[in-house]
Design a protein around this nucleic acid. Structure first.
Length: 99
DNA sequence: GCGGTGACAATGC
DNA sequence: GGCATTGCCACCG
């Protein structure tokens, strides 16, 4: 595949099923050629057309800048949120959800 | 080429 | 569970 990291990250995020979430580290692991920081950068740059709200931090929290929309969209999809943190144990996608 | 910065992660206290 | 430190990669002045 001649896709760049940017495209791979977008594909991985777009492959997250509705009602499920993934951490930046999980997305980076699926891409396998990038780091968690790269994922955040791509989502900020070109996440407008992606389910970026399904991507969370390793502890289930998220950045304050996007937290309000993150919170609203996830609940709309049926994702449980506990004290500002998503319940990863019940909504985290399995490793290799793309393949 | 260098230092600073950021939608992060892992570890230690 | 929360805060501080370190490491990571790409972009900007």
């Amino acid at each position: 595949m001649d896709e760049t990291r940017h495209e791979r990250i977008r594909a991985a995020v777009a492959a997250i099923p509705e009602g499920r979430v993934a951490t930046y580290g999980d997305v980076a692991a699926e891409v396998g050629e990038t780091s968690a920081r790269l994922v955040g950068r791509v989502l900020r740059e070109d996440g407008s057309d992606l389910p970026w709200h399904r991507v969370l931090r390793a502890d289930g929290s998220s950045a304050p800048q996007i937290l309000d929309e993150q919170h609203a969209r996830l609940r709309a999809e049926g994702v449980e949120i506990r004290d500002g943190r998503v319940v990863l144990a019940n909504h985290r996608v399995a490793s290799g959800w793309i393949s």
